[in-house]
Amino acid sequence: GSMEQGFLPKGWEVRHAPNGRPFFIDHNTKTTTWEDPRLKIPA
């Protein structure tokens, strides 16, 4: 929902695949990933 959306880094969006699995869109680089960007520790 909109709650989890608010925690994503700037430029990211979460969508759900037809099977219900969430995936993440990085509008900054125009890419998608199954990995939650929030789980990655910034270098």
Rank of each mutant, 00 (worst) to 15 (best):
G1K: 09
G1S: 12
S2G: 14
S2C: 14
S2D: 11
M3S: 11
M3H: 10
E4S: 14
E4G: 13
E4R: 11
Q5C: 15
G6M: 12
G6D: 10
G6S: 11
G6E: 09
G6F: 11
F7M: 14
F7P: 15
F7L: 14
L8P: 00
L8M: 09
L8G: 03
L8F: 06
L8S: 00
L8E: 00
P9G: 04
P9M: 06
K10R: 11
G11D: 00
E13T: 05
E13G: 01
E13A: 02
E13R: 02
E13N: 00
V14S: 04
V14A: 06
V14W: 03
V14Y: 04
V14F: 04
H16I: 15
H16T: 14
A17C: 15
A17L: 11
P18H: 08
P18A: 11
G20W: 00
R21I: 08
R21W: 07
P22C: 14
P22N: 06
P22E: 09
F23D: 02
F23G: 01
F23Q: 06
F24H: 00
F24M: 01
F24E: 02
I25E: 02
D26K: 00
D26S: 00
D26G: 00
D26N: 11
H27M: 08
H27K: 06
H27T: 08
N28K: 07
N28F: 07
N28R: 05
N28E: 07
N28Y: 07
N28C: 13
T29P: 00
T29I: 03
T29L: 05
T29R: 06
K30F: 07
T31W: 07
T31G: 02
T31Y: 07
T31D: 04
T32V: 15
T32M: 15
T32K: 10
T32R: 11
T32A: 10
T33A: 03
T33L: 04
T33D: 01
W34R: 02
W34A: 02
W34F: 08
E35T: 10
E35P: 02
E35L: 15
D36E: 04
P37W: 02
P37Y: 03
P37K: 01
P37D: 02
P37F: 03
P37M: 01
P37Q: 02
R38T: 05
R38I: 00
R38E: 03
L39F: 09
L39T: 12
L39G: 12
K40G: 11
K40R: 10
K40D: 09
I41P: 14
P42A: 13
A43E: 11
A43W: 13
